[in-house]
Design a protein around this nucleic acid. Structure first.
Lengths: 157, 157
DNA sequence: AGCTTAGCTGGACGGCGTACAGTTGTCCAA
DNA sequence: TTGGACAACTGTACGCCGTCCAGCTAAGCT
């Protein structure tokens, strides 16, 4: 079911992912989906959290870059991310915890703030990347460095 | 008409802004709206660009902070902003030009990149602010400083 | 007086998410 | 072996949505 949903999104964009379209692809009545999913929101949540399973976690910069790349690899899903203000599933939680630990080890002063800044930055950039523009990756990396530098420099203050 | 649309958004959220709801409030048949607006998208564009008229333009930091505040003052509209990847109307264009000039005067190396970074930052933060959380404003200001510092420091490279 | 045009109406089309009630098939406990 | 629980599904329906078409009316210009 998630696989079919991903196919729809990949082929026709996130806007084409409706319960009815999904049911059509599965050769099933639309309401049959509600035996497997509470809501459309529920479906989207599963879809989004699933994506995050692939994010690498070896270091802060690697983690954020990997998040950014993962999101831009599935541009059609990014609007959903924004709509739901980031994912909330188990993978998202796990990544959050890892990031917190890494930030703490780096001596960042305000860890929750730093986490939120980095997440906003990654998702925001992924959202504006849209197409396959080259400039975005470079801008993302450069501004990520600015942020990281800033948040580690103020560790003493 | 824009006023009525704003009322709906203010009272019941952006999700409640439908052509039909708008028509209902104006005591008019739904299709009558299409004499004044090409699309729902068109309506949203006008709505968004309108918001930007109030943004202050005296300095980069003031500009971005004002943008952030303007957006968070109308949290229900921010999702629309994200959906449409920023506004595209005359006000948005004007602000873009002003920001470019300010960035150039500040000696920033890559002006278009800096502009995009700042816009992503402001809209992204506004999107995640959501409610009236206190932390967000502080985080926004702090990370804005990090970005500004980074982009002006590399003006020589 | 006639023509154009702006602004509207009634009605319709195809789509959406989802609720309710009922059917089927599978599997386990008695 | 039978009975009942339960998961998965269907048919049908409700109330929304954006938008198109054709037609009406009133105001204004020539």
């Amino acid at each position: 079911m998630l696989a079919a949903a991903r196919e729809i999104v990949a082929e026709d964009g996130a806007g084409a992912l409706s319960m009815r379209a999904l049911a059509r692809r599965l050769d099933v009545a639309p309401n049959a989906l509600y035996s497997h999913v509470a809501d459309k929101t529920d479906l989207l949540d599963q879809l989004l959290d699933d994506l995050l399973a692939a994010v690498e976690t070896d270091g802060i910069e690697a983690m954020m870059t990997s998040t950014y790349r993962t999101l831009t690899a599935h541009p059609e899903l990014v609007p959903l991310f924004l709509q739901r203000q980031g994912a909330r599933g188990p993978n998202a939680v796990r990544l959050g915890e890892i990031l917190d630990r890494l930030l703490g080890e780096a001596g960042v002063a305000d860890v929750p703030e730093a986490r939120r800044v980095l997440i906003v930055h990654a998702i925001g950039f992924a959202a504006f990347a849209g197409g396959s523009d080259e400039w975005t990756a470079a801008s993302f990396t450069r501004s990520l460095h600015w942020l990281l530098k800033g948040m580690t420099e103020t560790r003493a203050s």
